[in-house]
Design a protein around this nucleic acid. Structure first.
Lengths: 202, 202
DNA sequence: ATAGTTAATGACCGCTTGGTCAGCAAGCTC
DNA sequence: GAGCTTGCTGACCAAGCGGTCATTAACTAT
């Protein structure tokens, strides 16, 4: 039938391998993930994988970085460009954002970082610079702007943007550990936003 | 000199090995932890380790369980026996509890569970039954009692005890990932308790 | 002392797995 | 279609590691 044994697709391979690797790392964690399985899942020989990625560790880092999407950037832009009142923004786009995160691949990345972060400090730094630091600053700016506009009281929340996203964090961990136990993430976020507003509204 | 090559100390060995294992697991995670290193750190041969623990996995489970101390039970009892007003209890013992947890070995256990939980569902179940479930119920009961006494308004918080401990969770994750970056855990908890009270006080 | 019991040792084994490389063949050029 | 480049394969290797067991020696009873 002259079915060729393989095709040469230099352009697509790295992404395909990276996608497969994400699945395997997500399912097994770093140490228990087998390079052979990644290759198999990508429909590729192990040799080829090592042509595109020098080591298993480099593959891991590439995968993590590739998932750090522009999700956070979207929020940053929304904060700066919104014409909503601060309260309406919190009840709308911000709330929606917080509800979405725990369902997204970000949760998987968090798990991998928690598990393997100690051994890959540069990965943690990367995540800090590109996600955490940016996100927290955006929240701080948002709160500050609310105060300047007279919509919010002056509270410690400005220096503690972590407090705003704490339930998001909890929800992510919950899903990682207790997938089968119930947690009404949406209600959690709704109530949390209500609570913050009750505390800071001018 | 007749210095004996070793002593027989049947009673103490398991705990010594378990302690050493905790250190190694904490530092390396499950998969990267070496049984040889645990034995070495416990000042014991690998063979002896396998006399007291059948497999590496059983050792891991024993370690996790041994750290699930009565910390939570202490809180439960405090809730039931306190003579403080609900508000005073939140500002006092509860707040203190939330501040302490992130600094305790519980944080390490959480990390190990997040990393390895998927592969050891019975461990997760154990942790759920002995820590999470109990703790959340205690918080729910506490909130409910506050409502009955007329100290608190009736809010969704009763069904969302997770919201109370969310910053504790975040603080733990923060310490695990971003040890060197600053986070004023105490201020975070203070503000959070203030916020909750502002929301639920009758 | 002596014999018996068992806590403790550490050399050893087999398997797993990350990583290599000599060779093969897809596809391009002329 | 001959020849060349290079994407791709998969058998192979060395190291590391969990787990075993024959042997040793610390302790006990008599």
């Amino acid at each position: 039938m002259a079915q060729p044994r393989f095709q040469r697709r230099k352009e697509d391979r790295p992404q395909e391998i990276s996608d497969a690797a994400f699945e395997v790392f997500a399912a097994k964690g770093y140490a228990a993930a087998r390079v052979d399985e990644v290759a198999k899942r990508a429909g590729v020989s192990k040799g080829l994988l090592y042509l595109y990625f020098k080591t298993k560790e480099e593959l891991f880092k590439a995968v993590i970085k590739s998932v750090v999407t522009r999700r956070v950037d979207a929020l940053l832009i929304a904060v700066d460009e919104t014409e909503l009142s601060s309260e309406a923004f919190m009840r709308g786009p911000l709330l929606e954002f917080m509800k979405q995160i725990p369902r997204s691949p970000v949760a998987v990345v968090i798990r991998l970082l928690i598990a393997e972060g100690q051994r890959h400090p540069d990965l943690v730094d990367y995540y800090w610079d590109n996600v955490v630091s940016k996100g927290l600053k955006a929240i701080s700016r948002f709160v500050e702007r609310g105060i300047e506009r007279g919509e919010f009281r002056k509270t410690a929340l400005k220096e503690l943007p972590q407090l705003v996203v704490a339930p998001t964090m909890l929800s992510m961990i919950w899903r990682i550990l207790f997938t089968q136990r119930e947690l009404d993430t949406d209600k959690l976020m709704d109530t949390h936003i209500e609570m913050i507003l009750a505390y800071i509204k001018a």
